[in-house]
Simulated scan of single mutants.
Amino acid sequence: MLSLTPYENPMYFGMLAVAFIPIVVGILWGKRFRWYELLVSIGFILLSFGGPKWEQGVALVGFLIFEVILVSLYNVYRKKKNDTWVFVIAVLLAISPLVVVKLTPLMSGTPSIIGFLGISYLTFKAVQTVMEIRDGVLKDYNPWFFLQFMAFFPSISSGPIDRYRRFRKDYESVPDREKYLNMLEKALHYVFLGFVYKFMLAYLFGTILLPKVQHLAVQSTGLSWGLVGVMYVYSFYLFFDFAGYSLFAVATSYFMGIETPMNFNQPFKSKNIKEFWNRWHMTLSFWFRDYVYMRLVFFFMKHKIFKNPKTTANITYVLNMLLMGFWHGEKWYYIVYGLIHGVALVINDWWLNLKKKNPDRFPHNKFTEYLAIFITFNFVCFTFLVFSGFLDTLWFH
C-alpha cells in the first residue's frame, strides 16, 4: 500500500486537490456531503498510516478507540457525579499512552510499539475534552462526533490543536457562499505561502545552510561564528518548516469549510517573551495556558499553597514551561529549554510591572520597541539553539 507523509510530497497535494472537488462544489451550493468527507478522511489517514507504517496505523486505531471509550464513560459519570478523584483518574488514563510512548525509549532504548505520528496532539484534544466535560461547559458531547473531531485528518499529525466546541460549530454549519469563497481565497494563499516557507525557505536554512554552519561550529572550540550561525539558521529553519506545515493544515481545513485556528502570527516581531508565546505555536501555547497554567494557579490559590499571588503565578510559569519541555522529550536540552522560558516569563512580568509602576523612568518610543524586538528575537534564537540538541552533540559527543 502507498504511504505518504502529510504535506511532504507533491503527489499528496495532487490527491488532495482531486478529493476536494466534490467537497468544494457541495459547500458552494450550501451542502455538506458528510459521508464523502468521512471517506476522504479515512482515505488520507490510511495514506498516512498505511503501507510500511501499518504498525502506526494499528496504534492510532487502538488509541482512538481507547480515548473514545474513556471520554464517553467519563461523560456518563459526570452527568451523575463530580468527584475530583474520578476526574484525576480520567485525565491520567487519557495521557497514559503518551507517557508510555515518551518514557519507553528512556527505559528500553527502543521506540514504543504504541507510538504514532501525532499522538501528542490527539492526547491534548482528549484531555481538554475531559476537562471541559468536568467544568460543565461541554454539555452536548457525542462519542461519534468526538471520534471525528479526534481523527480530523488535516491536523491529525502535528496540529494545530482545535477545541471540541469550536470545531463542532464549524462542522455542523455550512458557510454561506460569500464566506466560503473568502475561505477558499485564504486557503490558496496559505498553500502558496506554505510552499514558500516549507519547500523553499526551510530547505534553504535546514538542508543547505545548517550543515555548513554546523561543520564550522564543530571545527571550532567554544563560542564561534559557526555556533552563532547554527543558532540563527536553526531558528529560521524551525520556524519556516513548522509554520509551513501549519499553513498547509489550516488551508486543507478551510477547503473543508472548517476554520482551524492559526498556529503562528509573526512571532519574531514579539516585543517580549510573553508576546512571543502568544504568537508562536499558538494552539499549543494556549492549550498549556488554559489546561495547565490556569488550573495550577486555581489549585494553588484554592489550597493556599503560596501566600503571595505573584509567587503563585511565578512558580506556575516555571512548572508550566518545564512540563512543556518534558513533553518535547526527556533529553536535558528540552528540559533546560522549558526552564529558561519559565524563568524568562517570571522576569518578563517583573519588568512589565516595574515599567507600569514607574512610567516616567522608562521611555517608550520606536527605538525602544525595536530594541525590545531585537532582544526578544536573540533570546528566542539562543533558546532554540539549546532546544536543537546541537550543544549536546558539540560538547558531549
Rank of each mutant, 00 (worst) to 15 (best):
R289Q: 08
F145M: 14
K53F: 05
I113R: 13
M231A: 00
Q214T: 06
E259L: 05
L122Q: 11
I114N: 03
E259M: 11
Y171V: 11
F299V: 12
L354R: 14
K302Q: 14
E67M: 15
I340N: 00
K179D: 12
L284S: 07
P111K: 09
S96M: 03
F248A: 01
F248D: 01
F145K: 06
V68P: 09
A187P: 09
H215K: 12
L73C: 14
N278D: 13
N265R: 15
Y180S: 06
V76I: 14
F396G: 02
L227R: 00
T260M: 15
R34I: 13
D349E: 12
R279C: 09
L323K: 04
D241F: 03
V68D: 07
L323E: 00
P267F: 09
L284C: 08
G257H: 04
I156R: 05
M282S: 01
L138F: 10
A243G: 02
I95T: 13
Y190I: 03
Q148L: 13
K81E: 13
E55Q: 15
T110R: 15
F124M: 10
N308I: 08
L391K: 05
M11Q: 14
L28H: 05
Y36P: 03
P143H: 09
Y164T: 03
V101S: 09
K302R: 15
H341V: 05
W277D: 02
H397V: 13
H303C: 05
I21S: 06
L92S: 05
F326H: 00
T260Q: 08
L46Y: 13
L138D: 12
N353Y: 10
W85V: 08
N320Q: 11
F286P: 00
T5H: 06
H364C: 06
I65G: 09
G229R: 03
L385M: 10
S253L: 06
S388I: 12
L122H: 03
W327C: 11
G229E: 06
V213W: 00
G229H: 02
V228L: 14
M294K: 14
F396Q: 12
E37Y: 07
S224E: 08
L147C: 12
T84R: 13
M200V: 15
S155V: 07
V86L: 11
R295S: 10
V101D: 01
G325K: 04
S285T: 01
